[in-house]
Design a protein around this nucleic acid. Structure first.
Lengths: 167, 167
DNA sequence: ATAAACTTTCAATAATTATTGAAAGTTTAA
DNA sequence: TTAAACTTTCAATAATTATTGAAAGTTTAT
């Protein structure tokens, strides 16, 4: 496999994996392209490489910047904007975990709290609803906490003590 | 908030959260309905509660059974089939984690391996591609391993030692 | 063997989500 | 101030994904 093929394979795989970390295909592909690029890229560069429209590129770059994954870089002597992504995978994971927690998990916990605190009228079905939503709330909360803790250990978090402990 | 409202809120929230654990809306809603139900339900029951068609119900129930989340139960004296879901949240998490690892994460690791093992022709861009896909491969693999380990600790895995260690 | 009771399949359709491209908006240089 | 260079916006459209419903298939009771 040569460079070009490998690059395309990486970009398309990472793109379709986007759903796993909660973002859309174009967004993931732009990030993937920047991730393996040795220099920052302009909108023009990205459009050309990924064969997507200007509008699409603009919107998805903005979203990536909202997530804090991509940043603008000023290239002296150039008028147009250039973009780069966080290059450290662990920092990337930290950002993604934090954002998903904030955007998706926290709101769900809130709803589960509301649902599990309805008045217990003593009926079987009400008891079951309360019991099960409470259990789910706790699990979701635990997973969220764990994820954030893991991911906030900036140095070697995975390969160090936690990991060994669990052998 | 009364029972009916709480129930609907739970089902719709859990349904839209489906993407977070990688399944579609109807599938997640069926699972949610079964999860808070005190007895097993027939296809008819599910169709009626969720206002979805017979075909949709049938297909999504089959998928849930493929995942190993839902099982048929035989109700004596009844000809039609009844369904129930795993009621223990931790066991549920275990199943979901295992399936997602198998269906999504493992295949990605395979591609990252292929890409990162291309011939190093010494150019900057090739070195970058190899370096970054290797880093991503390791992170993905570590997260996958960790997830599986966590989730295979059947008893109190979250609230016990791991959790305390990370305080 | 037959028919009633039930489930599955799948082509058609609907709903949702992503993408385009051109007009409007903004910034910079002269 | 003007105009060129660039970015953003958003209505229209395309692509994708989910859902329906009726025909085909299966199982069970008699």
């Amino acid at each position: 496999m040569q460079y070009q093929e490998a690059k395309e394979k990486f970009i398309s795989t990472w793109g379709s994996l986007g759903t796993l970390w909660g973002i859309n295909k174009a967004m993931a592909q732009i990030q993937a392209l920047l991730f393996i690029s040795t220099k920052s890229l302009s909108m023009e560069d990205i459009m050309e490489e990924l064969k997507i429209s200007r509008g699409n590129t603009s919107m998805n770059l903005r979203q990536l910047m909202d997530w804090g994954i991509v940043t603008k870089v000023l290239v002296s002597g150039e008028r147009k904007e250039f973009f780069t992504t966080e290059k450290d995978v662990q920092e990337l994971a930290r950002i993604v975990a934090k954002e998903r927690s904030r955007r998706e998990i926290k709101p769900v916990i809130k709803v589960l709290d509301e649902v599990s605190s309805i008045k217990n009228d003593g009926t079987e079905k009400t008891k079951e609803l309360i019991k099960q939503t409470k259990a789910l709330r706790e699990l979701t909360d635990d997973l969220d906490t764990l994820m954030n803790k893991l991911v906030n250990q900036k140095q070697n978090w995975l390969t160090k003590s936690v990991f060994k402990l669990m052998k």
